[in-house]
């Protein structure tokens, strides 16, 4: 333990770059299933490192340390992983495409309404944060509430269905407009 070289003791912590796609140090991206995306990310964000890691020499050097047999197995494995990642991504897309955000107007008591927004979590949104944003945006009470039958929704004080519809479709680009729906609570018929 005593042989810490001079200066080494004062050396600051090493800063390591991590891949913006798979989160690993980019030199390990080749082992994930998202290699293609990882490479694009690196090229865009850290071109020098991309040059070093994806040069022909680097790739050849990597291969030369493995036996032919091991190379084949590794290639097969990588293929499987990529296929798995692709199908997971496709499923995720599908799930998002079929998920709906429901904005529901609920009558509390005479002429008092709350607006219940459900389904946002399917679009990877943090309900607490969104509730806070709604509260700020519309200057009203907004909180995450439990829904009978399981799950959570955001309850906003006041009849804000239309405003929330606009806000949601404009501010969350991952939610297609077709997936947002305004409904009315059907417990009581609206007075005509």
């Amino acid at each position: 333990m005593a042989d810490v070289a001079d200066g080494a003791s004062a050396s600051p912590a090493k800063q390591v770059i991590y891949c913006g796609i798979c989160s690993l140090p980019p030199e390990y991206c080749e082992f994930g299933g998202t290699t293609k995306k990882c490479e694009e990310w690196l090229q865009k964000n850290h071109p020098a490192m991309h040059e070093r890691l994806y040069s022909q020499d680097a790739i050849e050097a990597n291969l030369s340390t493995l036996s032919l047999d091991a190379q084949k197995r590794a290639a097969k494995d990588a293929e499987k992983k990529a296929a798995k990642a692709a199908s997971a991504a496709a499923k995720e897309e599908e799930r998002k495409a079929s998920s709906k955000v429901i904005i529901k107007r609920v009558e509390r008591n005479k002429r008092k309404y709350v607006t219940e927004v459900s389904g946002l979590e399917a679009f990877d949104l943090d309900l607490k944060k969104v509730a806070k944003d709604f509260g700020k945006k519309f200057a009203t009470g907004s909180s995450v509430t439990k829904v009978p039958g399981g799950g959570e929704a955001i309850t906003v004080q006041g009849d804000l269905s239309d405003d929330i519809y606009d806000y949601v479709t404009e501010n969350y680009e991952q939610i297609p407009e077709d997936n947002v729906e305004c409904v009315e609570d059907k417990k009581k018929k609206p007075a005509s």
């Binding site: 390990y28 082992f31 990597n62 340390t65 493995l66 036996s67 091991a70 590794a74 494995d77």
Partner: peptide, 8 residues
Amino acid sequence: RGAIRFVL
């Protein structure tokens, strides 16, 4: 190098 993918 060959062991990396197993570890990961």
